[in-house]
């Protein structure tokens, strides 16, 4: 399936991906300024920037073939979409127990909340609002690639 890959040589850890990721999953997915200035909740990015010895990497959900978060979900809310391969949360069914947060071996699921309800926050490849994951679209150094492995 198509996923986002980081090209380590060119990830500069600037955080532009985080900004657009957070906005894309906010109340105003298509307006950065509104997303950060008008949202009732602080926009939260779904990806992570890690640094090691001066190198940085922008990382997010791998949408695993054997997704431990899905297997571990106590409510059946976390599922892997058969068609797109995207691992997603059914917000209505999720009870916010965060078992997925501890199940994910990468630590790529963030604990969060929406409208006062606990919810896990994770990369959904921006499928809801965009054709292209926003991190990839806006990476200033083309360090993120959306495609097959």
């Amino acid at each position: 399936m198509k996923k986002v890959y980081v090209i380590e040589d060119f990830c500069i850890g600037c955080g532009t991906c985080m900004v657009y990721c957070a906005a894309a999953h906010s109340e105003y997915p298509k307006d950065l300024l509104k997303a950060f200035k008008l949202s009732s909740l602080k926009p939260v990015p779904r990806l992570f920037i890690e640094e090691e010895e001066g190198n940085s990497y922008s990382l997010m959900c791998r949408h695993c073939d054997e997704p431990l978060c899905v297997y571990s979900c106590i409510s059946g809310a976390m599922f892997k979409d058969n068609r797109t391969g995207v691992v997603k949360v059914d917000k209505e069914r999720c009870v916010g127990c965060f078992t997925c947060v501890i199940a994910c071996p990468y630590g790529f699921i963030r604990e969060g909340s929406e409208n006062g309800r606990s919810l896990p926050l994770k990369c959904d490849l921006c499928k809801d609002s965009f054709d292209m994951p926003q991190c990839v679209e806006h990476c200033p150094n083309e360090a993120l690639r959306y495609g097959e492995e």
Binding site: G13, G15, M18, V19, K37
Partner: peptide, 13 residues
């Protein structure tokens, strides 16, 4: 300040 969202990209760049 009306446009700054505190993302800190300027800081790290």
């Amino acid at each position: 300040e009306a446009k700054c969202i505190g993302c800190k990209i300027c800081v790290n760049q």
